[in-house]
Design a protein around this nucleic acid. Structure first.
Lengths: 144, 144
DNA sequence: TATTGTTATACTCTATAACTATA
DNA sequence: TATAGTTATAGAGTATAACAATA
């Protein structure tokens, strides 16, 4: 007699995580569209901390893309008035990126939306929320 | 005396999930590169089941993109010999997409890699794996 | 008339390579 | 020589609009 194949729990958990990632991507895209921004522009905006100045090369590192791409991304965000290029007093090769006040405001609204858990997570019991957090921490937290 | 702000468990769990999604995206991209495919081509390949014929419009629906994009994606996969266009005997407007035998082989290798949980998940205790699976199921499973 | 797929157009992201100006 | 940013170029994904063939 054949026994129904039992899914490996790790495999099923992984499939569920992949599904969440997919939905997350769509939500992020929809949110970016609301602000008339491309996903990468949102990512760049989130990378810049209010009041901070970061060299373009540093942004390329954080965004895991070639420095040549940063020029265009920066151009578009600067054209929108959300960030600005500043020169460095110490090294005239560097250009430092900083949020404008409007950029800070937009970044704040976007971050709040992205950092807020969706109803599916909010509606879990506190015990489930803690269990989820704890297991994910044990799975590596930052690493994975 | 100030007490350190305690993170909402749902919020922290959500942050951990976002982090996982980010790493997942990078891994998928790296895997696609190994096969010299673009991420969207991998997604399309995974959508097509072996032995199945699906209209291009159906693929557009599954991939959540405009039908006009499917033409290019199909062109590139067909040029690689991984899929082929077939005509429908019932409706001559339709073009049916199907994996070639090479396409099935590539799809199988890619799917196995994507469906296999990473070490971070595999190395969790069985109890943690089940707990993760169960909480994610309760969080909506397919929905979120 | 409506639908399927294609084409034309335009924009964003992606990398590589060559270039400039600094250091 | 080496580094930071730019430009040129090319390929891939994205959407909109107009089109041909078919229903």
């Amino acid at each position: 007699m054949m026994k129904a194949k039992v899914q490996d729990p790790a495999r099923e958990a992984w499939a569920l995580l992949r599904n969440i990632a997919f939905v997350m991507k769509e939500r992020t895209f929809a949110l970016a569209s609301e602000f008339d921004l491309a996903p990468m522009q949102v990512h760049a905006l989130r990378t810049l901390e209010p009041g901070e100045e970061v060299p373009m090369s540093a942004l390329a590192g954080t965004l895991h893309c070639d420095p040549s791409n940063i020029t265009g991304i920066t151009d578009r965000l600067e054209a929108r008035g959300l960030i600005e290029r500043r020169s460095s007093p110490h090294d005239r090769r560097l250009k430092l990126l900083a949020l404008t006040s409007e950029g800070e405001a937009v970044r704040e609204r976007i971050s709040e939306a992205l950092d807020t858990p969706p109803p599916e997570i909010e509606s879990l019991s506190r015990a489930d929320q803690r269990a989820l957090r704890d297991v994910l921490r044990r799975a590596g937290g930052e690493g994975l």
